[in-house]
Simulated scan of single mutants.
Amino acid sequence: MRRYSAPLVIGLAGAAVLIWLGVWQLQRLEWKEAILDEIDARILAEPVSLPADPDPTRDRFLAVKASGRTGDRDLHVLVSTRTVGAGFRIVTAFETESGRRILLDRGFVRETQKDTPRPPVRLTVTGNLHWPDERDRFTPDNDLEANYWFARDIDAMAGELGTEPLLLIARLVSGGDGAVAPLPVDSASIPNDHFGYAVTWFGLALVWLGMTALQLWRISRRDT
């Protein structure tokens, strides 16, 4: 029996650790889903006026409604959608009726519509405030001369268009010609991989137990 003891203890202990990691990931999944539900509720809440002193943590995804006029130029942010493919987000200055100048993400246009003229227009926009974190070390530098932006860099865009560093992403738009399709913020882009991690840990536990069983079988064969 001594020859069985060490492999059996190691096998059961290793499997217990792997199963515990899987259970922990399921707990993390429940926690993350609760957060995503809270974000979805915040996104779709009754809109309010623009806050006087917006905070990137407190006011992230805040639903707001504002009326005003778009600027005379826009910035083009490269993006891809599942249904259409490559295209651009149109980000412009937006001067509200109260005189504030903020950034407005009007939405999506196809790649062929990148340079279509979009003159200033009065709009009433319902959407969400957001401070997207889209740049990492692999993101190319923006090509300002060709008006190709590879991330929504709030501070850089605000400096380029002379606005507050505040981005409103349109969900519903009243006014305009409808040439720009809103691409609203949602929680789908927030990573939630905990279920996959849990499956991986449970799968490793099964493999570990299988290897342990194989080792015990080999020991038994040597004893016969």
Rank of each mutant, 00 (worst) to 15 (best):
E46G: 00
S49I: 00
S174A: 10
A93I: 06
D141S: 05
D193Y: 11
D153S: 07
A45V: 00
I43P: 05
V91N: 13
I39V: 15
G159T: 02
G85P: 07
G203E: 11
G127K: 01
L29H: 11
W31L: 10
T96I: 02
I90K: 07
R89N: 08
D105R: 03
K114A: 11
D40T: 12
A213L: 15
A13V: 11
V121P: 01
A45E: 00
D40C: 07
M211N: 03
F202A: 02
L214H: 05
A181W: 05
E95M: 01
P132Y: 12
K65Q: 11
R2T: 13
V199D: 00
Y148S: 03
R135F: 09
L167H: 00
E160C: 02
G159N: 06
V9L: 09
D55Q: 03
R89S: 10
Q25R: 01
V79H: 14
L209K: 13
L18V: 12
A181P: 01
A41P: 06
Q25T: 09
D59I: 00
P132F: 14
T112F: 02
A146C: 09
R118I: 09
V79I: 14
A93H: 04
L168Y: 00
M157T: 13
E33R: 09
P54E: 00
Q25C: 08
Q215Y: 08
V109N: 02
L75H: 06
G99M: 01
D133G: 13
P117F: 12
V180R: 07
V48I: 01
G71T: 10
R222I: 14
V79G: 06
L204R: 09
V77Q: 08
V173H: 03
R42M: 01
F108Y: 09
R42G: 10
L78G: 14
R60K: 07
P7W: 05
R221T: 11
L29S: 09
I102S: 03
S174I: 10
G203F: 15
S67K: 14
E134K: 05
T116N: 03
A6G: 03
R122E: 07
P51Y: 08
D133L: 09
Y148W: 12
T92M: 04
W24T: 11
L167C: 04
G11Q: 13
G127D: 04
W24R: 06
L29F: 03
A66I: 01
G176P: 03
L44C: 02
T57D: 04
L172Q: 15
R82Y: 06
D193T: 10
F195A: 15
P191Y: 13
H76S: 14
R152F: 09
D143R: 13
I102A: 06
E30G: 13
A63M: 11
A179W: 15
L44Y: 14
V91S: 06
H194A: 03
L26K: 02
G87M: 12
A158V: 05
I102C: 01
L75M: 12
R101F: 05
G107H: 11
L75F: 14
L123A: 07
T212F: 05
